[in-house]
């Protein structure tokens, strides 16, 4: 009897904190504009039925169940996946759609990517948990304007499809905080290049690493991030000022061959 009561309490507990949510993803083809108006052909997946030149970034809570519908409006087949969560959709042919489901049992930040096309797709990300923090989101990516993979020689390096100088207008990306705040930064590398992000002013703690789970807890100022991998960093700024964050592969601080129009952003830390 005692265990039966416990079972009902646990069931109620689970039901009260987890929710079933619907997610519609539309796959469209279009162009993303670099800072110098160079247009690059890409496919993106978004939750409205038109092309959006941005990465999809989803936020959920641990325990949520997703009912996913995917609509392929592109001219080629796609297959979506979240490798870390071992979730793979079936292949979706042009004009088709499919339904899938996903239970989110663990917190973290995961890359949502295309299995078939890994170069010219604006891959997305999914944040599970960590919802009550001041947070910022960087989807970092390299682009090759000549669409060359052999060898891969990208010439644009972006955060959330922007680069310096346009990145200053993206409030989801530019960290603005007060001294003493706990700031979380969610970083997904959805491109094919390796990056090494250096923070001026502060060390940050690795809360989550999709590639190296044993790196959690490390305090660093420079963070390697591998292709299709993700990180969550926690930073508590202790002084005011403006502090840059940039790729320390300094070739990635360029855009279209021009310095410093690449992966470069500044944090603004105010007094309390």
């Amino acid at each position: 009897m005692r265990y039966l009561i416990l079972f009902f309490i646990m069931t109620y507990w689970n039901l009260s904190f987890s929710q079933i949510k619907t997610l519609d993803i539309y796959i469209h083809h279009g162009q993303v504009l670099m800072y110098d108006s160079i247009a690059i052909d890409v496919t993106s997946f978004n939750n409205i039925d038109s092309f959006q030149a941005k990465h999809l970034n989803l936020k959920y809570s641990v325990g949520d169940s997703l009912l996913i519908s995917i609509y392929n409006r592109d001219s080629s087949s796609h297959q979506l996946c979240i490798p870390y969560l071992n979730w793979f959709s079936d292949t979706i042919k042009t004009g088709d759609s499919l339904n899938s489901s996903l239970k989110l049992n663990q917190s973290g930040f995961f890359v949502l990517k295309d299995v078939i096309h890994n170069h010219n797709v604006l891959d997305g990300s999914i944040q599970v948990g960590y919802n009550n923090n001041k947070s910022f989101y960087w989807n970092i990516r390299s682009f090759s304007s000549v669409n060359s993979l052999n060898p891969y020689r990208p010439d644009y390096f972006t955060l959330n499809t922007h680069s310096k100088p346009d990145i200053v207008y993206d409030s989801s990306a530019v960290p603005v905080a007060n001294v003493g705040d706990t700031v979380l930064i969610f970083i997904a590398n959805t491109g094919l290049s390796y990056h090494s992000l250096h923070f001026h002013g502060f060390h940050s703690e690795i809360l989550f690493s999709s590639k190296f789970s044993n790196h959690s807890g490390r305090l660093k100022d420079t963070f390697p991030i591998y292709p299709k991998q993700s990180l969550i960093l926690r930073m508590v700024p202790d002084k005011t000022g403006i502090y840059p964050v940039h790729d320390h592969n300094l070739l990635a601080v360029t855009g279209g061959g021009i310095y410093p129009n690449g992966m470069f952003i500044s944090m603004k830390i105010n007094g309390q």
Partner: peptide, 23 residues
């Protein structure tokens, strides 16, 4: 140690990877 801080779980490792800017 990494980037001027002790590593809380030091590890014996034959291959060490250092990205640009790392120490």
């Amino acid at each position: 140690s990494s980037d001027g801080r002790p590593i809380n779980n030091p590890e014996y490792i034959d291959t060490i990877i250092a990205f640009p800017g790392e120490r």
